[in-house]
Amino acid sequence: MSTQSSSVSTNNSQALLKGEGMLKQKQTASPFMKNLKIRSIRLAILVSFIIIWETVSGRLVDKFWISSPIDIVSTLYKWATSGDLFFHLSITLQETFIGFFLGAFGGIFVGFILGRWAFAAQVLDPFITAIYSLPKIALAPLFILWFGIGIEMKIIFAGMIVFFLVFFNTYAGVKDVDDDLLDDIRLMGANKRQIMLKVILPSAMTWVFVGLKLSVPYALVGAVVGEIVASNKGIGFLIQYSAGNFDTAGTFAALTILIIVSVSLNATLSILESKLLRWKKTNSV
């Protein structure tokens, strides 16, 4: 729900921006130019941040604390050429994706069953709420105990986090189906399977997608946290290992990789979402 309300408010603010833009449309440039302007300013901020960082480090602040962009890039280059980068990245991505798919399938499956089976949902409600409200990261030590410190533990850990997010959204989505739409298709003579396939599933898809979108970054969190807690490979291990060796450049380099990975994941999801949920846009004629 919070994502919905926030998107509404951004729509409103965009509408306000448009309204203001119209008043002085003659002076201001086209949307393309405006976009270009925003992008250039963003780039300028990034570049000046890096320049200031480079200038300050070693002069005003000890490199031990903040390293320097050049050192970070050279560490990245070193990792890339030695194959370390690819190795650790592939481990983390494996954990993230396998965990994500396991958790997502489980969450959708259980969400659908409980969404349609009101009695079971009512019985299990307090237990589900209790497990859901527990900070999942607190379970990491237990998972090490159960599943060891290998890749499996991270997959299960990431999968569990994803499971709950997707489960709750699917559950809400299935329960959110408009009863009038169900009546409408029943009057047309639809059987149970048709009602499921033509109304309940597509109607719940919006919610399921919100759950999936939310949970991709969390799958990454699960994998990386798992690696930081106990591991000898993966990006989380790189962060932990570099920091443990007082290698600030290495720590920042690993963080940079993590930022790039999560930004690309989110961008891919946004594109997917706008393609799959085209009908959601509301521009009335």
Partner: peptide
């Protein structure tokens, strides 16, 4: 009976054509 209620009851994820065709699909 075919029932056209006061509410539209269109499936928002289906196009105009998809909505009109749903009973035929059934």
């Amino acid at each position: 009976v075919g029932y056209m209620t006061q509410k539209d009851n269109l499936l928002p994820w289906r196009t105009v054509q998809g909505n009109v065709e749903i009973a035929l699909e059934i």
